[in-house]
Amino acid sequence: MVTALYELAIMGSPSDDQIQKVESYLSEGLKAFGLTLGKEVAWATRGNNFKPSRRIASAVLFFGAKDVSDSGLKSILNEGIPVIPVASRYSQVHVEIPEILRALNCLAFEEDGIQRVATALLECAGLLPRQRRVFISYRRNESREAALQLFDGLSARHFDVFLDTHGIGPAEDFQAMLWHRLCDSDVLVMLDTPNYFESRWSSAEFGRALAKGISVLRVGWPNSKASARISTASRLDLCDSDIDSGTRRLTDEVIGRICFQIEALRSQSHAVRGLSLFSRISQGLAQIGGIVSGVGEHKAVFAHLPDGKTVIIYPTVGVPTSVTLHEALNRSPDSSVAVVYDEVGLHPDWLNHLSWLGAHIQVGRYVKANEVAWAMADWEG
């Protein structure tokens, strides 16, 4: 039995035709990643008892209809799991969508089309190519060939892979950009050769990944003793037959195993880091008497402040950009918008850029995750 790496569901009252169209689109889109709907991506339809694991990425489409039941929705919304309400047409939202979901942005199946609806579900589960980011940490004199080979293998599976020989231009501050790219990754893959922790930089990459809450996969070389430091990392231990003694290249079979384990870890990382940011937002709002009504399309958090204002918050796991704010404003043109992010480890110049940009754009703001309560307590928007 294949272990599910992601969990997707359709709830509410979808028609057979709608289910078939969504399934067909999802199945085709997942092929690029080597994933199969119903296997690595668990798939539930029409049930109201969907209870996904909080440790893997998940999302829900809710198809509305007249007098549709909202059973099972409250617990999902409280868990911060994204729910995308879908009506037949926009004119039918108040007829077909339960009140508990009306605060969220709704889609209309007949007007938006299958591509928009299915892509929204994939995005909420972190299953678009631009969301799949991996950082390879290694010692050049011990595992350079394997690192290059893994770069190619992961790139072929539509991961955005950071490798120090490929990802930093010659005129840039190397170490600052290194930490910046690490913060924007879902998984750190450490190629644990005998002297991995003897390098100041590879050791720091490992430690800072843990500090940032980034999942770590330790790929252990046959003659490399596992350090006590890797106790919280996932492990994949190599044997002599996994490495060509002449070229030092990994076998195709072991590349496949590594990529599968990375896929599992990035789902966990996407879920856990997203949940952590959601919890910090919820706690910050509760601290000042505000509430969260749920998470919708684009993982937008719909927040209600104690003075009656509504703010749509876009949590950003990784590095926020000017594009992040631009997209948030475009998605919610009639609403007050905030982009919430964790600033730890980001390039100082980048943080200065965000502060400058935020000061010059009044319709939306960047908010540091540890300042949600402070910022929302006096929100003009």
Rank of each mutant, 00 (worst) to 15 (best):
N352I: 02
S202Q: 09
V254I: 15
A369N: 00
V292G: 05
G113Y: 03
A59Y: 03
S24R: 15
P306K: 09
R140E: 08
T119R: 13
E343W: 03
R132A: 02
Q149H: 07
R139Y: 02
G220T: 13
G72H: 01
V216W: 05
V219Y: 08
L163E: 04
L150D: 08
S75A: 15
V323S: 14
L329H: 06
E205W: 05
G38P: 01
L191E: 01
Q92G: 06
K31A: 11
S53Y: 03
Q20N: 09
S276L: 09
R181C: 05
G72M: 09
A300K: 02
I230Y: 07
K368T: 08
V323C: 04
E327R: 15
I255G: 09
D160G: 04
K74H: 00
A211V: 12
A369R: 03
G64A: 05
R208Q: 13
T316N: 11
E7N: 12
P85C: 08
H360T: 09
S282H: 09
L122T: 06
S332W: 14
A271H: 04
A156I: 06
P348D: 10
S143G: 05
G169H: 09
W356A: 13
G294K: 03
W379K: 07
E198W: 15
W374T: 08
P320F: 02
A209K: 01
R102E: 03
F260G: 07
H326M: 14
E380Y: 07
R144Q: 14
L122M: 11
E172G: 00
K31F: 02
G318P: 10
G290V: 05
L277Y: 02
T316Y: 04
N352K: 13
V367W: 00
E380S: 04
Y366I: 03
V254Y: 03
V83S: 04
F62H: 00
L210G: 03
V86A: 02
K225E: 13
Y90A: 06
E253F: 03
L182E: 03
V189F: 00
S27Y: 08
V372Q: 06
C106V: 13
L128I: 11
E79G: 02
A271L: 00
V372W: 04
S24L: 12
L163H: 01
L325A: 12
R130E: 15
S332I: 02
W350N: 11
G220D: 07
R273Y: 06
D242A: 09
G345R: 06
T36N: 13
Y6I: 03
I312M: 05
F159K: 07
L250Q: 06
Q18C: 10
F33I: 08
E327I: 12
G47V: 09
G294Q: 07
K21V: 12
R130I: 10
R266E: 08
N195H: 15
G358E: 07
S75K: 12
D240H: 13
A209S: 14
A228C: 04
R181I: 00
F109P: 01
T3E: 15
A286W: 08
M190S: 15
V161N: 13
V292E: 04
L122H: 02
N330G: 15
T45L: 00
Q362D: 13
F63W: 05
V216K: 00
I312V: 15
V340Y: 12
L188N: 04
V367E: 10
N48D: 11
